[in-house]
Design a protein around this nucleic acid. Sequence first.
DNA 1: ACCTGAACACCGTTCAAGT
DNA 2: ACCTGAACACCGTTCAAGT
Lengths: 202, 202
Amino acid sequence: MARRSQYTREELREKALDAAEKIVAEQGSEALSTRKIAACIGYTAGSLYLVFENLDDLILQVNARTLRRLHQALRATTDQVTAPEQTIQALGMAYYEFACRHVNLWRLLFEHHLPDDQSLPDWFRSQVAESFGLVEGQLKRLSPGMESEQIQRSARALWGGVHGIVVLSITGKLDVAGADEAKQLIHSLLHYYLQGWLVGIE
Amino acid sequence: MARRSQYTREELREKALDAAEKIVAEQGSEALSTRKIAACIGYTAGSLYLVFENLDDLILQVNARTLRRLHQALRATTDQVTAPEQTIQALGMAYYEFACRHVNLWRLLFEHHLPDDQSLPDWFRSQVAESFGLVEGQLKRLSPGMESEQIQRSARALWGGVHGIVVLSITGKLDVAGADEAKQLIHSLLHYYLQGWLVGIE
DNA sequence: ACCTGAACACCGTTCAAGT
DNA sequence: ACCTGAACACCGTTCAAGT
């Protein structure tokens, strides 16, 4: 066999990531395997190792795509500029809706383990930081005088908080009745936090 | 072969769960397998199916133990009664410390997937609800007149929030420098939320 | 140079057969 | 009745060998 290259490295990479996304989205992350990905794109599992270090590396790159899409969804929200508190609320809802629409990819993003010795690559962490930046931007509008260290802390606390509500409701551990209830929880968290925060400022 | 029963069903179950916990705690959830558990307790993988439905069922029961220990750690905190806000803060810190002390078991608890068709058993959800109850109790002390529906919502929002900060910092996705910073985020979340909440009441 | 296919060391799960 | 051990259908990863 050993077919002549139909695809360039880059094309192969993209095809593999597309296939991986499809499998995860349709069948859950548990169902993902190198053999299935390879079969989807008409290759053998071994070929994937020409393009990826291993399955963990491949998953990391699927997660990078998900993160990018998430960021775009959040960006689209902040671009419709309104009052900062409303924008933060809208960001929370967009976050929840994104997680619902792409449950399996979203779970893979947050539940995938790297081996104990490896930590997340820098480009990954800076992509996460970018999304936090959107919240920071709104907090700055809300309280222009505040030190950026404080702004950063509040953005992380708030966004970590929203994330927690989203995880627990999506994994069925919060016993929430439906999307409406989850959104109410997010609203409550953001609303009272910001209220307390602004009181603290004056 | 076919050794006469050295252990009762119940003993076998406990031994298997002990072994599973040990493997997860020491090597991470990725390393857990029926074959390893069986080898640890001197049995064959097949024997586990006399006591557990399958590996998912076994993991669920490991998670039940973790949940029980978590609840005990939180209980111990509320028992040292002080002012409600301080108690809630102490609960947040206890939650974070528990997660740090038992990272791998804690991750298993929150990252384990059941097959798509199955949802979490009721006893599991009511165990989660019990821990939320501790927060509700403190919120009630803080605002005795409030409707229990509102109390419940705030307890979930707050605890979901704390959970999110803990997950993101433990999985290295918040880019927090260390335990101190994570605790500051939790403190910030709880403090400003409660401040806003109490303002809303008056 | 590109890719295969076989091999290796693992999985979860089932179940006839042994004691 | 209790447990094994072999079997089945899967894994991720490597690498000599084919084109």
